[in-house]
Nucleic acid binder design. Structure first.
Lengths: 225, 225
DNA sequence: AATAGCAATCTTGGATCCAAGAATGTTGAC
DNA sequence: GTCAACATTCTTGGATCCAAGATTGCTATT
């Protein structure tokens, strides 16, 4: 599908940044990257500037592009917006979800439960992802679904770490079931409220999360060297 | 500040697209644009792909980039999300707005009123813009403010036309005052509800609006030829 | 007359080249 | 010893060049 190396490089850089392979504020050198990906500077340049549009890096004219991890404050803000978007998805989905989508929701929820019982955080994370995307889609608002997905992806590394916090997995699962129940019964207000809480609690626990993230980034950096 | 011609061209193309200077689905030819802006193809290419990231155009690898105006459905969806974001701004602003910002809000509201009394829709539009941006900022959530601004800008041409609908100006003004009152009194729920209604009504009137837009685009196209 | 196949042309995407601004390092003056 | 001025080097941004896929138009065949 994508036969442009600029797009592939953008994709790979995105992954690399999300995986914290670069230090905060580090300059992404075009020459270095073009060697790394065995292409000329042209597609690298395009990829870098594309990334700056989506906010993962900051492009300073004539100086270069620098990776910018969101500050603590910014993260809290982003989780707050995420909570609102998810709540909106829930409210709409409660009214609009189809039988088919309800079945998918149950599938995802069951898979989450199974992962939880196994105590497999990675697997839980994957199925949790599916659960939420079913809801985005079920909102029947494709623009909303798109925006929610984007932000969801952006917050991925921060959310993921939180699942490692003790007891969070079971708690998260209970919240999923509450959401599912509200959506199934068509209770828009309760679905919205449950989803809002489900996300907002992550923002509120950002302190623990940041501590974990720092540890993780330290490990990741030492591996990279 | 911006000393990259690629950025300037992106900006100008954005304006041109918003002003409906291109037909829906039209291919944006790199050669043509590079002549138009008296630069080589390089910055034009970068600008075009940057635009595709923000969704104004669609880039098809090896084929070119094509302008894509949002469909009617998509517009309704976008207004729905905008209503939600504005409501969130209102809810937060009601709790967090400073004395200073309250003064700015009153300034903007008064300017709107004056424009309305003059019957100057363009002026009203400008001040209306200011009113909303004060609210975005007053939410105290810079990420939210940023996202709201982006979507606001994207919807600009569709909103703007609506102010020409008979009686809409006075109605809009009343809604502004209601919002201002709720925010001033710190009534978060009422501020959110008022703002949601203020935006949602625009989405609901999209039918009238689209009729106007079609007329406008026809005029614009004939001027361009 | 319509369509399949092919050739000529056009356009995009990547590589390379060049100019100009930014960073760095050295030297000299105080 | 420190700091300012200047020269050198590095890196980005734009222009140009080249390859490859896409479009178009022509021709020949049915």
């Amino acid at each position: 599908m994508t036969l442009r190396s600029a797009d592939q490089i953008r994709e790979q850089l995105e992954q690399a940044i999300i995986a914290a392979e670069f230090a905060d504020g580090e300059r992404l050198d075009q020459m270095m990257l073009s060697k790394r990906y065995s292409v000329s500077r042209t597609p690298v340049r395009e990829a870098l500037h594309a990334l700056s549009t989506s906010g993962l890096v900051e492009a300073v004219p004539r100086r270069g592009v620098f990776v910018r991890y969101p500050s603590f404050i910014k993260l809290v803000e982003m989780f707050d917006v995420m909570a609102e978007l998810e709540a909106m998805c829930g409210r709409l989905a409660a009214r609009r979800i189809t039988e088919d989508e309800l079945a998918h929701l149950e599938d995802a929820a069951a898979a989450c439960e199974w992962a939880m019982e196994k105590g497999d955080a990675d697997d839980y994370y994957r199925e949790n992802e599916r659960f939420h995307h079913v809801l985005y889609h079920a909102s029947g608002n494709s623009y909303l679904a798109e925006e929610a997905s984007k932000l969801h992806k952006r917050l991925q590394p921060f959310r993921r770490l939180q699942l490692r916090v003790r007891g969070r997995l079971a708690q998260s699962m209970r919240e999923h079931r509450e959401v599912q129940d509200a959506v199934t019964k068509g209770d828009a207000a309760r679905a919205a409220q449950a989803l809002h809480g489900h996300i907002a609690i992550q923002g509120e626990h950002l302190n623990d999360l940041m501590a974990n993230f720092a540890k993780h980034r330290a490990r990741s950096a030492s591996r990279a060297s």
